[in-house]
C-alpha cells in the first residue's frame, strides 16, 4: 500500500508537470540558470586549485648565507640539516656555481664578467617534510636565527595569496549558493502555491472521501523534487556546455605558457550531488508551501 501511494503520487506529479508544459519548462529553466552560477563558480575554483597545485610543486626554503661564511661553518650547517626532523632533503649551492648558472642566462654573461668579485652568497635549498604554511614559517624563523644566515626566502608566499583568494572565492560561492538556493525554494514555493489554489476542489474532495494529509501532500512534494532535479540537470548542461566552449579556446592559450591544462568537467560524484541537492531544495520549497497553504482548505 505504501509503495502504491508513492507510485500514485509520483505519476500524479508527472501528470501535473506535463499538464502545463510551458509554464513548468520556464520554471525549470529559471532554476537551471540560477543553479548554473554556483555550479560554474564551484567548477572554476576546483580548476584553479588544481592548476595552482600543478604550477607550484612543494614549496622550498632558500637559505642565503653571509658572504664571509667559512667552510667549517658550512659543514656544520650541513650536518645540522641532515639531523633536522623537519627537513626532507636539501642541497648546497656554492656561490661560484650560482654565478655560473646566472651567466648561462641570456643577456647576463656580459654584465657578470664586468664584476670584480662574485656578489652572490652560498645557499642551501631545502625541502621541508611538511608543506603546511605554519610549519614552513616556523622553519624560516628558526633558520633566520642561525648566526651565518643572511636571508631566508620562502617561495610559498604567492601560494598563500592564491589560497587566501581561493578561500575568499569559497566564501563567495557559499553565499551565492545560499542565495540561489533560497531563490529555488521561493520559485517552488510559489509554483506549488498556485497549484494548490487550482487544485482546491480536488484537495477538498480527496479530504472528504478519506485522504490523509500525507496523501494530499505527497504529489506536491514529488512535483517540487522533480522540478528541482530537472533544474539541476539544466544547470549541469549549461556548465558542461560552457566548459566545452572555454576548453576549445583554452588549449591555444595554455600552449603559449607551456602548461598542460584544461578545465575539468563536473565529476560523477559532483553531478549526483548537484542533482540530489537541487531535488532536495525543490522538495523543501514544496513542503513549506504545502505546510502553509493546505490547512486552509477544509471541506
Amino acid at each position: 500500500m505504501w509503495l502504491s501511494h508513492h507510485w500514485h503520487a509520483f505519476f500524479l506529479a508527472l501528470r501535473r508537470l506535463v499538464g502545463s508544459p510551458l509554464a513548468n519548462l520556464l520554471n525549470i529553466i529559471v532554476i537551471g540558470v540560477a543553479f548554473s552560477l554556483p555550479t560554474g563558480v564551484y567548477m572554476l575554483l576546483g580548476n584553479v586549485q588544481s592548476l595552482s597545485g600543478q604550477l607550484s610543486g612543494a614549496p622550498q626554503l632558500n637559505v642565503f648565507l653571509k658572504l664571509d661564511t667559512g667552510k667549517d661553518a658550512i659543514e656544520k650547517l650541513k650536518s645540522h640539516l641532515k639531523q633536522h626532523p623537519q627537513v626532507e632533503n636539501f642541497r648546497f649551492l656554492p656561490k661560484d656555481k650560482a654565478l655560473e648558472q646566472l651567466k648561462q642566462r641570456n643577456g647576463m654573461a656580459t654584465a657578470i664578467n664586468s664584476l670584480t668579485r662574485n656578489p652572490l652568497p652560498d645557499a642551501f635549498i631545502i625541502d621541508a617534510k611538511s608543506i603546511s604554511p605554519e610549519t614552513l614559517k616556523r622553519l624560516r624563523n628558526e633558520m633566520l636565527k642561525w648566526p651565518d644566515s643572511m636571508h631566508v626566502q620562502l617561495d610559498s608566499d604567492w601560494m598563500e595569496r592564491l589560497n587566501a583568494l581561493l578561500k575568499l572565492g569559497q566564501i563567495a560561492l557559499l553565499i551565492l549558493t545560499a542565495l540561489l538556493s533560497f531563490a529555488l525554494i521561493v520559485v517552488t514555493f510559489n509554483t506549488i502555491r498556485l497549484q494548490i489554489l487550482t487544485k482546491r476542489n480536488e484537495i477538498e474532495v480527496s479530504k472528504l472521501i478519506g485522504a490523509t494529509s500525507n496523501f494530499i501532500r505527497r504529489p506536491f512534494l514529488y512535483f517540487g523534487a522533480i522540478q528541482g532535479v530537472a533544474g539541476g540537470a539544466i544547470a549541469w548542461l549549461i556548465v558542461a556546455l560552457v566548459i566545452n566552449l572555454i576548453n576549445s579556446e583554452l588549449i591555444n592559450l595554455v600552449r603559449l605558457y607551456a602548461v598542460d591544462f584544461q578545465l575539468h568537467h563536473i565529476s560523477f560524484e559532483d553531478s549526483i550531488s548537484l542533482l540530489l541537492f537541487s531535488s532536495w531544495l525543490g522538495w523543501v520549497g514544496a513542503w513549506l508551501s504545502v505546510a502553509s497553504h493546505l490547512w486552509q482548505i477544509e471541506p
Binding site: 500500500m1 502504491s4 501511494h5 476542489n201 480527496s206 472528504l208 472521501i209 478519506g210
Partner: peptide, 25 residues
C-alpha cells in the same frame, strides 16, 4: 454530497477510482 463535488478535469473512471487510490488499492 449536495454539491456533487465531481472533479471535472478527470474522466468518470478517474473520479470513481479516487477513493480506492486513497486506500492504496
Amino acid at each position: 454530497f449536495q454539491g456533487q463535488k465531481i472533479l471535472f478535469d478527470r474522466s468518470v473512471f478517474d473520479n470513481v477510482v479516487l477513493p480506492l487510490q486513497i486506500c492504496g488499492f
